[in-house]
Simulated assay, not measured.
Amino acid sequence: MTLQSFVRKIYQGVADRQQMYRLFDRHGQRPNRWENDDSALFAGEWFEIARAEHDTMLDILPPLWMRGEMFALREFLTESVTSVFYTLHIDGRTRYFHAYCDLSQARSPVETRAAIVERESWPVKAMTHEERLEHIWSATHDEYRGYAGERFVPEHRGKRTLLVYGLGRTELKLLKDLTDDEIAAKLPVHLRHLPAKTAA
């Protein structure tokens, strides 16, 4: 399975409660779940939520800790990764975010906060190629996404896949191999024409 460990936005827009819970475990179908330390798979993923969802999560259990505009959940997703929720003031607006932070790295919550503020302060609304792929993966129903298995060459097994509909056929493709046209077809209409931005 391909693991990631960089800070990355995984959903464009404000996730509602149902979407928030789906995003909490968007890798739920991964092969060999729970057999390995999947910290790198989750650490660094973040998305925006509404205040109601933020406040609900604060009320569920006493937080592990609270520091200024952020708090961490007491229940860990993996050995060292847990949810951190942020209340951030960006461009004169108060906004709310969820991120998975690896608390074995002491600066992870602060560095994630800085990455969120930097990303959400772009002067022009845009999406990187990677954000387009992450949004598609996040928004696709479990029945239409999965992980490469025996049909794929060994070096691709465990990588993320999607069902793609073409002219009279359905094809299972690696997420990273989607063409620009396939990406556009899978994005919501309001996101299709956003300018592309190269990741820093």
Results as ranks from 00 to 15, higher is better:
A50H: 01
E48K: 03
T87M: 11
E143H: 00
I136M: 07
T161F: 01
Y86N: 00
H54E: 05
E45F: 01
Y147I: 09
K186I: 08
G166Q: 05
D59C: 02
F24Q: 14
D181H: 02
F152L: 03
W122A: 15
L103E: 05
A99R: 03
V110H: 10
R107H: 11
L23K: 01
D180Q: 06
H27C: 11
K159M: 14
R160V: 09
L178A: 06
L178W: 04
P63L: 10
D37M: 07
Y11L: 02
G44A: 10
T112P: 03
L64M: 11
F47N: 04
S5Y: 13
F97P: 07
T82D: 07
A50L: 02
L133S: 01
R74V: 11
Y86K: 04
G13Y: 06
T198S: 13
A99Y: 02
E75F: 05
E182A: 02
S83G: 12
T140M: 07
R151G: 10
G68N: 05
L167Q: 12
H135C: 07
M20N: 15
Q4I: 14
R192M: 07
D180N: 00
L61W: 06
P195C: 10
N36I: 13
D180P: 09
D37Y: 01
H135E: 10
T161A: 08
E79Y: 03
A40I: 03
R22K: 12
H89I: 10
Q105N: 14
L162F: 00
D180M: 03
I90G: 09
A43P: 05
L187C: 01
S108P: 05
V189N: 08
E131V: 08
E69F: 09
R160H: 03
R192Q: 15
I183Y: 06
P154M: 04
E69S: 09
Q4D: 14
G44M: 07
S39Y: 02
L23T: 04
A15E: 08
L88C: 00
A200R: 12
S5T: 13
T78S: 13
Q12P: 06
D55V: 01
E48Q: 15
I90A: 00
L167K: 05
I49T: 06
H190L: 09
R107C: 11
Y147G: 08
L3E: 15
E75S: 11
A43R: 08
R17C: 13
M1R: 04
D25M: 04
R30C: 12
Q4F: 14
E120R: 01
G168R: 06
T78E: 14
H190W: 06
R30T: 15
V117H: 06
D38Q: 11
T82L: 00
P195T: 05
A106D: 12
R113T: 13
A196C: 11
P62F: 04
P188H: 04
T78P: 02
R119C: 10
